[in-house]
């Protein structure tokens, strides 16, 4: 199986990336090759196999409900590309 240009464009939008026409072509090829390689997986019957989400059987890791210190407003915004009135600023979004 290979990847179509439409697939690439759809996924790019989901990932909030944009590519030139040439890049789309190249990605369709490169990702297609990786996916073709991954096709080996489909040869393996895993219908009765449980997925492993965590390699170690750790469970129930909780935190106590206790307040600890926060960043100041200045610290929180220190790395922001744009800010105003103590807030991060983005282009206008509709409500």
């Amino acid at each position: 199986m290979s990847l179509t240009r439409e697939d690439v464009t759809y996924v790019a939008n989901l990932a909030r990336l944009e590519f030139s026409e040439d890049e789309v072509t190249a990605l369709a090829d490169q990702l297609g090759a990786v996916l073709d390689y991954a096709e080996t997986l489909s040869g393996l019957d895993t219908s009765h196999i449980k997925a492993t989400e965590h390699v170690l059987a750790v469970q129930n890791v909780f935190r106590e409900d206790e307040i600890k210190s926060c960043l100041t407003n200045e610290e929180a915004l220190a790395n922001a590309p744009e800010s105003e009135a103590g807030c991060f600023k983005v282009p206008r979004v509709m409500e």
Partner: peptide, 16 residues
Amino acid sequence: SCPTEFGQDENTHTCP
């Protein structure tokens, strides 16, 4: 561990 308190000044109850 940031507090959930409502109605505080903007971006004062944050951490990394």
